[in-house]
Design a protein around this nucleic acid. Structure first.
Lengths: 109, 109
DNA sequence: GCTTTATTTAAGTTGACACTTAATTAAGTG
DNA sequence: CACTTAATTAAGTGTCAACTTAAATAAAGC
C-alpha cells in the first residue's frame, strides 16, 4: 500500500489532483476542468490515487465526488518520517561505534 | 528541487540505496554489491539521488563515498508535512463555511 | 608510463505508463 | 424507452527512464 502511495504521488499531475481535492470533494469533471488533458486521463489518475488509498469516492447519481483520504496520507507521512527518525537513531549509533573504534586504531581512508 | 526529490524516491531501488547509505557512507561498488543490477545502473541512480540533493559524494582516491544528505531529506519531510498541515487548516475552514451555509439553506446533493 | 581498480559516460534496447479517441456503463429525465 | 449527463473501460500510440554492454576517465601502484 505504501509502495502504491509513493508510486501514486510520483506523477506531478496526480499531486496537483491531490492539491485540488484536499479542500473538499470534487467531481471527476470538475477536476478535469483544471487541466488540459482528457477526462479519461483524469479518470485513470483518480483510479491510481484511489487504489493507493489517497482518495475516496462518494457516488451521488451520475456524479462521483472525489475527496482526500486522510488515513492514506497519514501513512505516507509516517513512512517519510520513520525513514528520517530511524536515520537519526542509526546515525547516533554509528557515531558511537566510530567513537569506540577510534580508541583502538586509526580510521582507514 | 523538491520535485526532483520526489521523483528520486519514486524508484524503489533508489529508496533501497537510501536505506543502505543512511547508516554511513558507502562506495558505489559496495552499494552495487547489494543488488543484481550492473554498476553503471547504480551509478545512474546515484547521480539522480545526488542531483535531487538526497545524497552527497566524498572522493578519496579512486573511490567515491556516498552518504545521505540530511538537509535534502528535511526538505522532503517538510513538503509532505506542509501538504498535510495546510490540508487540516483548509478542512477546518471548509467545515466552518459549510456550517455557515447550513444556517441559510439545505446543502445540495 | 603501462596496468589495475573504481567509477562514470555513451549508446542503444525494452517495458511501463501517461496520454489519445472510441465504445461502454450507469443513473436520471422528458 | 429514447436521450442526456457523468464517468469509466477498452484499445492503441508515443515518450521516457531503467536497464544493458562497451568505451572513457581518473587516480594509484609497480
Amino acid at each position: 500500500m505504501i509502495n502504491q502511495a509513493i508510486h501514486a504521488i510520483t506523477e506531478p499531475r496526480r499531486r496537483d489532483i491531490l492539491y485540488l481535492v484536499r479542500d473538499g470533494e470534487l467531481t471527476s469533471s470538475a477536476i478535469a476542468s483544471h487541466f488540459d488533458i482528457s477526462a479519461p486521463a483524469i479518470s485513470q489518475h483518480l483510479k491510481v490515487l484511489e487504489e493507493a488509498g489517497l482518495v475516496v469516492v462518494r457516488r451521488a447519481g451520475t456524479k462521483r465526488f472525489y475527496g482526500l483520504r486522510r488515513e492514506g496520507f497519514a501513512e505516507l507521512k509516517q513512512y517519510i518520517e520513520s525513514f528520517w527518525d530511524d536515520s537519526l537513531i542509526r546515525l547516533k549509533e554509528a557515531a558511537e561505534e566510530e567513537e569506540r573504534r577510534n580508541h583502538e586504531s586509526k580510521p582507514q581512508q
